[in-house]
Nucleic acid binder design. Structure first.
Lengths: 355, 355
DNA sequence: TTTTAGCACTCTCGGCTTTAGAGTGCTAAG
DNA sequence: CTTAGCACTCTAAAGCCGAGAGTGCTAAAA
């Protein structure tokens, strides 16, 4: 579930080497200092001398799992080192029932919109991890029309209110060719509601436009209104892709990200969204938790960051992705189960909301 | 219009002293280095020797307009110095027609909601000034009910859609005591629309609750529905106070704000909103552009920042405030007219939207 | 063959000193 | 009142030094 298949297989490391690597990564995650042989020898509890440990570390460096900032500074895991650690060595600390319950309560609180829910959940993620929390807004490939309403604003402008799925409300203003009266609009809305409530919005669109547009001239006034409204109402994909980020400021506290310029670029990436959306799209179709370590994400700005994500699904349909973004040196053992459980709880909450 | 009455009057400075102060502030704003007597003497074009300038500078320091970072480092304006500069010395560079036209085009673009408009305008402000742009969302003390719609979601949950003023759409979910059928809800909405469209929402609330609640038992089924819906629908002030910030990342580029920790606190203040809202509230009732320099704002986090704001009004009613936040050392002569004009243009855009 | 002790070596970091340069304040002369 | 001159102050950058941490290598021990 938590595992991700490793890209590029790893040579087999013997038991002891793995144990030392594990101890080193854990130690480094704990206090952020390069780990030296003496420290590691003590830490690992294997009753080895520093000299022996040094030999092992040299091997691990050779293999690309570790890196020395400089000659006399102990070692630090590379992205590859973290990857092996996560795939093969990591002890996950699953949340206990009490924690899950706390989470559930926070997520189950009544909200007005999925956007509000997303914000609240990303706040939650960032608050607990002290990293940046991200929640991609639910998007469904099947969007069901629940209700539509037209309201004349002025001469040629009509306010359209769409209720989609179960409680997603959208409104847009459309320009019409001619002014419409309140009664006309009501009738048109009524017609659409009668005919299409509960139908997939794509189908509605096709049905209306394909069948009716060509015969427009022969239609009665009501149907002409319906068609003009519908044309614009269902014109564009009504649910845009988007996400919310919370707790960016936490990233300013991590010593690992102290480079102001890098940090600025990272924040700008959060705002531009394009790149990150691309990344999250990749996670949509993954099963369970997905982790990108540093360079693995393929984005320059995320060089020193890791991204931990999980998709959330309702009835087998993937609605979106959530996760956290933080420095590569993060407490994976804690973060991974949290992201995993949060995704499940969010799914559950959305499921409940459904009915 | 641009002026703000000075808190704490200033002793009169003679012409030459003022001229030197002006030159110094302008120079400092230009290149951010403390200005020395030699530089200033050359800069001011007064044909004075550095020694003379030094004497003047010593006086200005005495009076609290300037400050020396240390013995041999030239001088820097204090908040008080900036204040006098802005109130009495500043040359405003009004936008030329071409610039205004560009702005107008950006602001007049069609939008779906006032929130979108606010975002777009704060983007605009931050983009031009390369500072953080802020737009407080329109809020009216008179909120007119335009249309209301009820939609049954499930057993005891009803989706309420409110169209307020001209095109502000709000939706909320309310819990009801008993399940309601679609027809009942339609009738209730119909009744409310018939009776109260165009009325102030406060009045609607009072009218419904005061007059009807007590006589509830004697009401027919329709009116009972109406009352239960209305009770919750109009329960809370439906328009919350809020603002949007854009271009925070620009602040990470100003050399003046290079302290990571200060910057973090500033960003957190943006998120918490409480404090800044308080500040903006003060600007709501001011006429024209208002400027807070450093400590003047009364917020620790804004110590090294200035805030330039202007309220925007439609038909004499103040709807909100917009402005920019940046380091104390900003190009006031450019920023102030921009904020001023932007506020007017936004007001104009909202005015147009009205009909 | 593997592990370990010993040792010389390397590199960083903090503190210290030095130096150049910028800018000041004061004084006395114009 | 203005200005030239000068001694003085302070910073910032550069260089130097020593302590400390950690390494790699070698040779001995297990």
């Amino acid at each position: 579930m938590y595992r991700e298949s490793t890209p590029g297989s790893h040579p087999t490391l013997n038991e002891r080497t793995q144990h030392l690597l594990k101890a080193l990564v854990e130690r480094y995650i704990r206090d952020g200092q390069p780990v030296g042989s003496r420290t590691l020898a003590r830490d690992a509890g294997l009753d080895l001398s520093p000299a022996t440990v040094r030999n092992v570390m040299a091997d691990l460096e050779e293999l690309g799992y570790l890196h020395s900032p400089h000659t006399s500074a102990g070692r630090v895991p590379t992205a590859r080192g973290y990857r092996f650690f996560i795939d093969a060595l990591l002890n996950l600390r699953p949340l206990d029932d009490r924690e899950v319950e706390t989470l559930r309560r926070r997520i189950d609180q009544p909200v007005q919109s999925s956007a509000e829910l997303a914000r609240s959940v990303s706040d939650l993620l960032s608050g607990i991890t002290r990293l940046a929390g991200v929640v991609m807004l639910p998007r469904r490939n099947v969007v069901t029309l629940r209700h539509v309403e037209f309201l004349s604003l002025s001469e040629n402008r009509v306010l359209v209110i769409l209720v989609l799925n179960t409680q997603e409300v959208q409104n847009r203003i459309i320009q019409t060719r001619r002014p419409y009266g309140a009664v006309e609009l009501q009738q048109a809305a009524h017609y659409l509601n009668e005919q299409f409530t509960g139908k997939d919005i794509q189908q509605v669109r096709e049905a209306l436009l394909r069948d009716l547009r060509e015969t427009r001239d022969s239609l009665d006034r009501l149907m002409q209104t319906v068609v003009e409204m519908a044309e614009q109402t269902f014109e564009t994909e009504p649910v845009g892709e988007d996400y919310v980020v919370a707790g960016q400021t936490h990233l300013m506290q991590c010593a690992d990200l102290s480079d102001l310029d890098k940090l600025r670029q990272l924040f700008e990436a959060f705002n531009h969204k394009r790149d990150l959306l691309h990344l999250f799209d990749q996670c949509l179709h993954a099963e369970g938790v997905q982790i990108f370590i540093g360079e693995e994400s393929g984005f320059e700005v995320l060089e020193v960051c890791s991204v931990v994500t999980a998709p959330y699904t309702v009835e087998g349909q993937v609605l979106g992705v959530l996760g956290v973004i933080g420095p590569t040196r993060m407490a994976y053992g804690r973060v991974i189960p949290l992201v995993d459980v949060t995704a499940r709880l969010l799914a559950a909450a959305l499921n409940e909301q459904k009915d």
